[in-house]
Design a protein around this nucleic acid. Structure first.
Lengths: 214, 214
DNA sequence: GTCTATAGCCAGATAGAC
DNA sequence: GTCTATCTGGCTATAGAC
């Protein structure tokens, strides 16, 4: 009886973010995102989590399963925001303003995410097949229809919805993937790069809307 | 004497592309681009080249040096074209037309290159420091000045040269890095994706120029 | 649940014959 | 220059004590 009560106390002391499982997931996220599936070492993840290597295998049977947990979690951060924007009721112009601003804000917070996700999808295309099954997977049909309608009504210049969509996500995501290259090309440092990204929250939507507004 | 002559004959039979060294470099390129430095196996590269693992170490002392050779070669394909465009004498509008069309044509031929280069730079940022030393490394100062001049003269709408540069390369490069994701979002297959990329040779410059022309 | 110790494998690199 | 055979280290995964 006493031991139960003591255990209870101990459990209370640990916040939800301090359980071994979440410690491991966080550590794994950091290491996998930096080094990828192939470059990451289980020992390194254990060290980062401040626990033992054997414990990784206790919670997640093997490296692949630990990786999958991290990957799916990362992807599920990226996708839903896309969906929200694509399917709400605002005009194309409003959609673009909201989406670019929100997505770039999000990218500033999680700059390593797109590189990680895209790299690992290229390494293992099976992932995408799995992801597509899920009902939350982004669907752009409504957006396509809306663009066509607004083009026909003369609100927007002639443009293919699919090309517009590609342009939008390219402008939001690429700068973060290519950060080291862009910094080198512009011959600049983190401070100025961050200022540029901050400005892009408005810059990108202006750029797009300038181009397509009739 | 006879052996010398025979050796000569053998060497004549081999075209320049059939020497062991180029066989190895080609094989290494294929494997490294698909799997990255960490994912690639020396054995796999040897198999792809149709030679023995030990021979890899004979020509390139170790895996890192073989990788470096491939990486530098890949990068030196990407960079000079950028430089050519940035420093010739045409107007900003012409520059954008030429650059986007040429670069997307090039990307269609080498779709795996940007992913490879950017991924490995992120994995090992030392690379960029080395690359920046080289005189052929792209320099955008002239382009920046030119954009500012044309904005001041009223040929172009107000836009920061650096943001414009980021937009241009984002629109050219990202679609190829994100190909599996984009295909999934658009719910489409290789055929249609390739058609879209083909169209982008003109589409991208129209999109940009629409946006910035006064 | 958490640890130490170790099994077992695989990959990079070298030795040495031809 | 090219091969076969082998060394060596490091990594995933498990066994087993507490």
């Amino acid at each position: 009886m006493l031991t139960i009560w003591l255990n209870h106390l101990v459990k209370m002391k640990k916040s939800k973010d301090d359980t071994s499982e979440t410690l491991i997931l966080n550590a794994a996220k950091n290491i996998f995102i930096k080094k990828g599936m192939d470059g990451a070492r289980m020992q390194e993840i254990a060290d980062e989590a401040g626990i033992n290597k054997a414990l990784l295998h206790y919670y997640f049977r093997n490296k692949q399963q630990l990786f999958d947990a991290v990957f799916l979690n990362a992807f599920s951060l990226l996708a839903p925001q896309l969906n929200d924007i694509l399917n709400d009721e605002s005009t194309v112009e409003e959609k673009i303003k909201n989406f670019t601003s929100n997505y770039i804000t999000f990218m500033i917070k999680h700059p390593y995410l797109p590189n990680f996700v895209i790299q690992e999808i290229n390494r293992n295309p099976e992932f995408i097949i799995e992801l597509r099954q899920k009902p939350q997977f982004p669907n752009i049909e409504k957006f396509k229809l809306q663009v066509r309608t607004e083009v026909n009504k003369g609100y927007l210049k002639q443009i293919e919805a699919e090309q517009l969509f590609i342009n939008i996500i390219s402008l939001c995501i690429f700068p973060f993937m290519g950060k080291p290259l862009i910094k080198a090309f512009l011959n600049t440092e983190d401070d100025h790069f961050n200022t540029l990204m901050e400005a892009r929250k408005k810059e990108v939507s202006n750029f797009i809307i300038n181009s397509i507004k009739a």
